[in-house]
Amino acid sequence: MFDKEMTEKNSVAPGHNACSGCGLVLAARLVLNAAGKDIIVTTATGCLEVTTTNYPHSAWRVPWIHSLFENSSAVASGIEAALKAQGKADKIKVISQGGDGATADIGMMCLSGMFERGHDILYVCYDNEAYMNTGIQRSSLTPFDASTSTTPFGKYSFGNPTNKKDMPAIAAAHHIPYIATASVAYPQDIEKKVKKALQIKGPKYLQLHAPCPLGWGFKTAYSIKIAKLAVQTGLYPLFEMENGVITSRKKLARVLPVEAYLKEQTRFKHLFVSEDGKKELERIQAMANENIKKFGLA
């Protein structure tokens, strides 16, 4: 299991202080290992930054910069421009990273600018579906009915009242050449998509589902299992879109009911205790069905 040589090659070194079972840091390691060493990486404020760069210790074996919460993509734009000016843009690739809040909420303006200007940057959104670093507050990528610290389940609430913002569609509206979703449960798929994205010139958007044991409420050993269930129920469709056309999707050999995914997590447990909860589950099942139909997953 513990392969010293492999560990030393990792772009995200062990010794960071993320929680055990953290889907996010695992996902970042998979992305950056696939990207190779000729990269410069920007990261938004959040768990990924806080857990990997507690001065004087850094877990990053690649050049890495964190500036603010909302400007990972704009800082990356500046780096890409500098590399162009220095004549190094063909050799060194720029990867910009952020969590779901940094991407879909506070960093949306900067990201839209990066897409629209056509910078040669791979943007990776690590989607753990809430503001985990500040204590599990909802973001616009928090799923419907998830109980978070700012959308708690209660007498008058089933949790988060809104659906996930459709970030891939927003990225697509910028007519960027490559958009993909991925899940930490499928490492080879991540590697393939990152490598492919880096071959394509222009802005790329990769949204990566990364379970958070603490925020979602499951045992730390189950991160991969939970991530897989999100895909297998149709709630997190995996696909690639190239120049506006869906070119691949992860087909589901057997579609599982959404309960299989939801019942494993504390954030959805309130859906299983009342008759009204059943209606909510039906609504969530309808969303999964819609995904399956829309992306042709079955």
Binding site: A74, G78, A85, Q86
Partner: peptide, 28 residues
């Protein structure tokens, strides 16, 4: 003038772009 001129969507991004450029070693 041989320079990358980046037209951004806000001053917030303008400052962030020159931050990235300077960190990458370019005069900005």
């Amino acid at each position: 003038l041989k320079a990358e001129f980046i037209n951004v969507e806000s001053e917030f991004s303008a400052a962030s772009v020159i931050l990235g450029a300077c960190a990458a070693g370019s005069r900005a």
